[in-house]
């Protein structure tokens, strides 16, 4: 596995000649994504303040860009792209499944507690 690297990223849109070149290419990609995040984080455009499924569009963008970064770090820096399907699925799907479950449970409950505080009879915060 060690010596044959798959040298395409973005579903074959970008092809590199060597592994070293691919590493620098992925660095550029990650830097661009981070720069976009930082610029959006500083200026917070008013257009992106609308809500989709209970969360600001801006926050959805941040989370999606983070997942994009995580994909390229795992696939190219950690060479997941070059591993066998079996290893890749054993690691990645286990993580994705359990993490989605955890996030759903905790955020759901957090939202519920907030609802009890603000609508229920429990006085949330007397100053």
């Amino acid at each position: 596995m060690a010596h044959d690297h798959k040298l395409e990223i973005l579903r074959g849109t970008v092809k590199f000649k060597s592994n070293t070149q691919k590493i620098w290419g992925v660095l550029i990609l990650l830097s661009i994504v981070t720069a976009v995040e930082v610029v959006l984080g500083i200026y917070k455009p008013e257009v992106l303040m609308g809500k989709i499924i209970g969360m600001k569009i801006l926050n959805w963008i941040f989370i999606i860009l983070t997942l994009v970064k995580a994909y390229y770090i795992t696939w190219d820096f950690m060479h997941m792209r070059d591993e066998t399907k079996g290893l890749r699925r054993a690691v990645v799907w286990t993580a994705i499944f359990l993490i989605c479950y955890l996030i759903f449970i905790l955020l759901q409950e957090g939202g519920y507690v907030e609802g009890v505080y603000s609508n229920g009879f429990i006085k949330q915060h007397g100053f």
């Binding site: 286990t94 359990l98 993490i99 996030i103 905790l106 955020l107 939202g111 507690v113 907030e114």
Partner: peptide, 28 residues
């Protein structure tokens, strides 16, 4: 790889707990 997987779950637990508290106090 499997150590990393378990460590990733630990970190997810922490971050999800952060999310829980944040959703609980979403207004301030």
């Amino acid at each position: 790889w499997f150590f990393i997987l378990s460590d990733a779950l630990t970190f997810s637990g922490f971050l999800a707990a952060y999310g829980f508290s944040r959703f609980k106090f979403i207004d301030y």
